[in-house]
């Protein structure tokens, strides 16, 4: 697909995110807005998946979202790519919805294979799914997305060590390196130091993506990462994004991690983001 077309989809995803979080008057717009390009590139250009959704996903690529709080972006992309009706986005975070505040398998929303929300667990699950693919002699890829703040959780580094130890070269993890977490900039809250060197030292093939909100760069990097699989090492993309990207007064501001816009802020934000596929 033309990059211009992908950008149009990302624009609609951003509108969905803002309207969902505004509609629920709760949720996490910052990280969701910042990863719109990643999700669109993954589901429209990179991943091989089939519908209807099948939990085991044998013979297709899998995706796991570890930082579950940014699920508004994922829900929008799943709906827009045919996993469930877009009208259902209006139920986000409401009673009796399949679109829980954090993703879950318990409500059987197509596209989701494990609950996430309590942070730091997704990489372990992705490693397990990658092992399962190896056991099944299924040569498809397991993708996962993680927040940078989430890397404070030690379980990530247990998982990172094990992915290299077990030679999970069918795994492409991406770190949303937006350099902010709930309480502020990561270097103030808990400095991650040299993230590239850390993953390298843990035995990973490290790919840099400095322009994580550039659709062409994201798409090309994800495609390049595929060519790094099958070489004995897990692959990690350190994707530099801006929290709240696409809305001028949210961009780069950690205070938009988990706060919904009010009516006036929503109107100002939507005025900056063209409606391309039709609002839900």
């Amino acid at each position: 697909m033309e990059i211009r077309e992908l950008e149009k989809i990302a624009s609609q995803v951003r509108r969905d995110i803002l309207r969902m979080v505004h509609g629920a008057q709760s949720g996490h717009p910052g990280g969701a807005l910042g990863t719109a390009e990643y999700f669109v590139a993954l589901y429209w250009e990179v991943m091989n998946y089939s519908l209807p959704f099948d939990m085991d996903g044998i013979g297709e690529d899998l995706f796991f979202l570890s930082n579950g709080h940014i699920c508004a972006a994922w829900y929008s992309v799943l709906a827009r790519s045919g996993f469930f009706p877009t009208e259902e986005l209006a139920t986000f975070r409401r009673l009796n919805s399949r679109l829980q505040g954090h993703p879950t398998t318990a409500e059987h929303l197509p596209g989701i294979r494990v609950a996430s929300g309590s942070l730091g667990q997704g990489l372990s699950v992705a490693v397990g799914a990658a092992i399962s693919k190896k056991q099944n002699k299924d040569r498809h890829i397991v993708y996962s997305l993680h927040g940078d703040g989430e890397l404070d959780e030690g379980q990530n580094w247990e998982a990172a060590m094990s992915a290299a130890h077990f030679k999970m070269d069918n795994l492409i993890a991406t770190i949303d390196y937006n350099r902010v977490q709930i309480d502020g900039p990561i270097e103030k809250v808990m400095d991650l130091g040299d993230l590239w060197a850390k993953f390298h030292a843990f035995g990973w093939d490290v790919i840099s993506l400095p322009e994580g909100n550039n659709m062409e760069a994201v798409t090309e990097t994800l495609k390049e990462a595929k060519t790094h699989t099958g070489k004995g090492k897990p692959v990690v993309i350190i994707m530099q994004t801006e929290m709240g990207f696409g809305v001028d007064f949210m961009t780069g501001d950690y205070r938009w991690h988990g706060v919904p816009p009010d009516d006036e802020q929503l109107a100002r934000a939507l005025a900056q983001i063209p409606e391309t596929l039709g609002d839900y």
Partner: peptide, 12 residues
Amino acid sequence: NMVGIAAGMTIG
């Protein structure tokens, strides 16, 4: 990590 890996292994 072992618990998470076990959960992931069930997928497939």
